[in-house]
Amino acid sequence: MADKLSITAEKRTEFGKGAARRVRRADKIPAVLYGHGTDPFHLTLPGHATMMALKHTNAVLSLDVEGDEHLALVKDVQRDPIKRTIEHVDLVIVRKGEKVIVDVAVHVEGEAAPDTLVTTDYTEVSVETDFTSIPESFVVTVEGLEAGNQILAGDIKLPEGVTLITDPEALLVNVTQAISEEALEAELAEAEEEAGIEHEESDEEAAEGGDEDKAEGEEEAKSEDA
């Protein structure tokens, strides 16, 4: 379940890209807090503490903003696409007893039956739950499943008080018959033929072809001598 993590935040009065860069250089993170009809709070969060808190999925933060406490759910985290450092955090205010809709990761465990292929169509599902009881993840098992078996969103065992928002018929995991290497090569060759793709003869194939031609020539010569 989600942990409530305490963080001391500061109100931010400077805005724009330059101000955000200065905040990050000071090992802090720009953030915005909104919700419940309040005006957005532009905040600065401590870099290390925030990074540790965001290791928790759907983290709930207890923010101390200049002496005022705000409970907030992490709604969005923007990261640098290269360095993966945290660029900005969106937080939404939550109140005690309030339910929220969040995405929860789905983990697949176990080994399906031999000669099967397991594919995952969804890696998370949406649920509605009290913000104090957000599941960290859901686990589904494919242990021993034969080809033809499927796991749907509605098959997940939900804790009490958690409601599934994702379509119950949504396919999470599909177990199919694994294709043999020979069949895969045949399908690939057929697809290439339909697409008009021709491969240049390799040196080995050319050498083998030359040996076959030579052998055929020798056989023909023997026949003529006879």
Rank of each mutant, 00 (worst) to 15 (best):
Asp167Arg: 05
His199Cys: 07
Gly47Gln: 06
Leu145Trp: 00
Asp211Ala: 15
Ala26Lys: 05
Glu169Ala: 13
Ala186Thr: 11
Ser126Phe: 05
Glu190Asp: 09
Pro159Tyr: 09
Glu224His: 13
Val60Cys: 02
Val100Met: 14
Thr132Ala: 04
Glu182Phe: 12
Val65Glu: 02
Leu152Asp: 02
Leu45Gly: 13
Glu160Tyr: 02
Leu45Thr: 13
Glu128Ser: 03
Ala31Lys: 10
Val142Gly: 01
Ala195Arg: 04
Leu188Ala: 05
Val104Arg: 06
Lys75Ser: 13
Val89Asp: 14
Lys83Asp: 03
Leu43Thr: 02
Thr166Val: 05
Leu71Gly: 12
Val102Gln: 01
Pro159Val: 10
Leu61Tyr: 07
Leu63Asn: 08
Tyr34Leu: 03
Thr44Val: 11
Gly35Phe: 02
Glu146Ile: 08
Glu160Asn: 02
Leu184Gln: 12
Asp203Tyr: 15
Leu5Met: 09
Asp39Asn: 04
Ser133Asp: 14
Pro46Ala: 04
Gly97Thr: 15
Asp213Gly: 01
Arg84Met: 04
Arg95Phe: 15
Gly47Thr: 02
Thr163Gly: 01
Ala20Asp: 01
Arg24Ile: 00
Ala49Lys: 12
Glu124Ala: 11
Ala206Ser: 15
Pro40Met: 09
Gly16Tyr: 05
Glu160Asp: 06
Glu200Ile: 05
Val142Tyr: 04
Gly196Gln: 15
Glu224Val: 14
Asp39Thr: 03
Pro114Val: 11
Ala186Asn: 03
Ser180Asn: 14
Pro168Cys: 08
Gly154Ala: 07
